[in-house]
Amino acid sequence: MDFPGLFNYWIVIALMMIGFYIVISQGNLVKKIFGLNIFQVSVFVFYISMGKVEGGTAPILAPGFATYTNPIPSVLILTAIVVGVATMAVGLALVVRIRDAFGSIEDDEIAKLEGDVT
């Protein structure tokens, strides 16, 4: 009974970790940003999953329905999605500026141009 439930969460965790891996392993700045997107969306999937109620319907009150999906994860994730896209916009704008200033959007090439690796 418990196993299939947890199995779903494990797939979501695998998704998060793929996104996380892209962010920390890839050298291309655009790819990093989109890896971050995968990571964040997977965390959102995790939140929405816990709001699920067996047999529940969308949380819009209507006569004839008694069981609703939990609305709180939806509310939190609406906020988090907005924060995510805001970060992405600023991140991509930075990438454009970095390309102008360094002529590259590859991490290792930029580090070379910066002349010092911390």
């Binding site: 998060m16 996380f20 962010v23 920390i24 700045l29 990093k32 971050l36 990571f39 964040q40 965390v43 995790f46 939140y47 816990m50 988090a80 924060v83 970060t87 600023v90 991140g91 930075l94 990438v95 500026r97 970095i98 200033a101 360094f102 930029i110 910066e114």
Partner: peptide, 23 residues
Amino acid sequence: LTAAFRYLIMGTLGATFYVLGIG
């Protein structure tokens, strides 16, 4: 610019970990 970008990546990872922990 690159300093801001690296901070953005690390900071957002940190914030996402935070959200995960709160979740």
